[in-house]
Amino acid sequence: PYQKALKSEDVGLKFHMADSLYTVGKYKKALKLMEQVVPEYRGKPQAEKLMFLYSDTFYNLGDYYLAGYQFERFSNSYPLSEKAEEAAFKGAKSYYFLSPRYSLDQKDTKVALEKLQEFINKYSNSTFIADANQLVEELTHKLEKKEFEVAKQYNRIFDYKAAISAFDNFILDHPGSEFREEAYFMKFESAYQLAVRSIENLVEERLTTAKSYYESFKRNYPESKFQAEAETILEDIEQRIDNKQV
C-alpha cells in the first residue's frame, strides 16, 4: 500500500498514510509522502497539522538543520497553534543538536542559546522549561570551555603574557563559570612562570605581581582544590623574593 500511496494522485490518501507511518515511527517513508503533499496543502487548514508532522519528522530523523528551519516556519505561521510551544522548544533544541564541539566555531551554539532564551521568555510555564534550562546551561558551559581552553593553550605554548590577559578576560566575562576557580589559579601560575622566565631586573616586580594574583585567588576561593599546588608555588615565590632582597 505504501508504494501505491506514493504513486497515487490522491493527496488525502497520501496525507493519511504519512500520518499513520509517522505515528508508528516510520519517518523515512513518511517523509517521502509528506514531501509530495506539502506544496498541495499550503494555505489549507490541514496544513497546520501537516507542517508540524513534517518538521517533527526531520527532527526524529536527526536532520536538525532542516528541523530547526521548519519548526521556525511553523512557529511563525501558526503562533496560536496548540503545538506552537512544542514546536518552539523542538526548534530551539534542533539548534542545540547542531552546536559543534567546543573547539570549533560556535555560531550555531549562539543561535541555539538565542532560540532557547526566546522560548524560555515566551513559555515560562512550559513543561519543557526544565529541559530548556538544562540545555542553556550545557551550551553556556561549552562556550566557557572554549574560551577557557584557548586561554590555557597560551599557557601551554609558553605565552604567559597572553595567558594572563586571556584568563583576566575570562574571569571578567564569566562570573558564574565553574572554570573560574581554575582560571584564577592558572592566572597566578602563568604570572609566576612569566616572572621566573623574565630578565633579571624584571623578576622581582613580576614575582610581586604574581603574589598579588595569589591573594585574589585565595580571597575568592579560600578552600580551592588547587590550594596545595598554589601554596607550593607561593613558597617558591617568597623564597625567590627573599633571595633577591638579601
Partner: peptide, 21 residues
C-alpha cells in the same frame, strides 16, 4: 570564527596577535 572543521588549538597557536599584546 568560521572554523567548522579545524580545532581552535591548531589555529590559535599560529596567531601572531595575542591578548594583552
Amino acid at each position: 570564527v568560521g572554523n567548522d572543521k579545524t580545532n581552535d588549538h591548531v589555529i590559535y597557536r599560529e596567531l601572531r596577535v595575542r591578548p594583552g599584546q
